[in-house]
Design a protein around this nucleic acid. Structure first.
Lengths: 257, 257
DNA sequence: GAGTGTACCGTACATTGTACGGCTCAGGTA
DNA sequence: TACCTGAGCCGTACAATGTACGGTACACTC
């Protein structure tokens, strides 16, 4: 991005900030909580790229540089936003495991809740998540999501792998959906309008090529979903397939035992 | 980003550019191909964010604004880079279906090749892919990847869904791996050093909490992989599970028929 | 030799994150 | 009360970005 390169981040300071109390007000009433909330509101509407420190400060009626008293920089701010966005994912650490349908029902619930958060806050996809994996809400999330997988005969590593697989699927699908929406909004064209606009060029340009199966399948998909992609369908199709696969693994484990 | 907001893009022009000949030189020998190649080289090393039009122009010993004679803007340039990166994915449109092991072997091959490309060009994750889905190389890729799924009893929509599921998994996993590498490079710390650095703060801060399963599993994963995440393991675990799930679907279809 | 279109590019501008240094005020001490 | 100190606040400045605009120079055609 523009500006000087990001200062060397201090991981320990970031961690302390994540776990700290965000409610202590300064002289003008400014708090970390208020900064994070304002930033989330802006990012929900415009995305992370469009979010600027100046915009956040303006919304809080505060000088831009005042933010830096409470937050070391934009990177740390997005980390805080990330952890906060997952703050009310679950009522408590047992909510997923209390769902009906055993581990399968629990994973379906987990997938649905994650999907909802990602849809409400599409900017989450742009946050580098490695650093924030130890925030308070993310930690609680990990505990809540592992519990339904405990005691099924899986090893600890397998429990983590199974959860990661489901979450990666939800994230990837939600990301594609968010991108689709954003592309539509940026261009001001619906999928159908866009298609109509490029259609003549496309036939010209592809006249020399011959892709029989891609043509047939692409057409079928387009007619079925009115689009090249239906994220909701991709989510459930993939989840069903993944859970079927995990069923085999879990059954083989309990059979061995 | 900085600068004026991106000009209203013309989809038809972008499409024509994607399919056009990129070898026609201008007065100073500048070609679209050369611009794209230079940009890919730079992005491979530094990422898409760090890639600037000025850097590309400097590398080609050309004025910055000369690039705009050949390419409408940075967005279209990344589209071209994207399509080009997938240029030599497969020798021909039948390479995946010729792999041993039937459809399962073919999908494993597809996953592996996509993984290799994504690992070689991590900036691909930052390119909005919706627009480029109709570039020449992406179209050929789609054809090549659908062929091994044809004639198994799946509907056209199911063929697309199955492929999308596998590709989403590979992308999500590769993205996590790329992020891990980038975080390490940016911070200059290995996973282990980073962990040691935050460890005291972490115990202080988490002293009041109690997450038994997260603690147990997290520790097991960390010891097993020397890291919170092993992308290669996540890839194969997920792929196996997904293919097991798809096997059930395909068998049920051929049984019905 | 004149004219024309296109490739090339220097300059300018809005916008970004944030370093730096100064101002102001709350709270403690004398 | 008078003063001091540290922290909150923030105006200004800077390097970097994508690209609009308008000018220059070259390769053509006639």
């Amino acid at each position: 991005m523009a500006g000087r390169k990001a200062a060397a981040p201090d991981p320990a300071r970031s961690l302390a900030l994540l776990w700290g109390s965000h409610a202590k007000p300064g002289r003008s009433g400014l708090t970390v909580r208020a900064i994070v909330d304002a930033a989330i509101e802006l990012a929900d509407a415009e995305g992370l790229e469009a979010l600027s420190m100046r915009m956040v400060a303006d919304r809080l009626k505060v000088g831009t540089m005042s933010l830096y008293t409470h937050v070391p920089g934009k990177g740390e701010l997005t980390d805080l936003m990330f952890d906060r966005a997952y703050g009310d994912l679950y009522a408590d650490a047992d909510e997923p495991s209390k769902q009906p349908g055993g581990w399968r029902g629990a994973l379906e619930f987990i997938a649905r809740r994650n999907w909802e958060i990602l849809t409400a806050h599409p900017w989450i996809h742009e946050v580098p998540t490695m650093r924030t994996a130890l925030g308070p809400n993310i930690t609680r999330k990990y505990e809540a999501e592992l519990r339904p997988l405990d005691g099924l005969g899986l090893t600890d590593v397998e429990m983590d792998s199974a959860l990661t697989l489901v979450l990666t699927h939800v994230q990837g699908t939600a990301r594609a959906g968010a991108e689709q929406l954003r592309t539509q909004r940026d261009s001001g064209l619906t999928d159908e309008e866009w298609w109509r606009q490029i259609s003549p060029t496309l036939t010209t340009v592809m006249s020399g090529t011959h892709f029989p199966i891609a043509g047939r399948v692409g057409t079928a998909v387009g007619e079925h979903f009115q689009s090249a992609l239906d994220p909701a369908h991709a989510l459930t199709f993939g989840l069903t397939t993944i859970l079927d696969g995990l069923t085999q693994l879990i059954e083989s484990r309990s059979a061995v035992q």
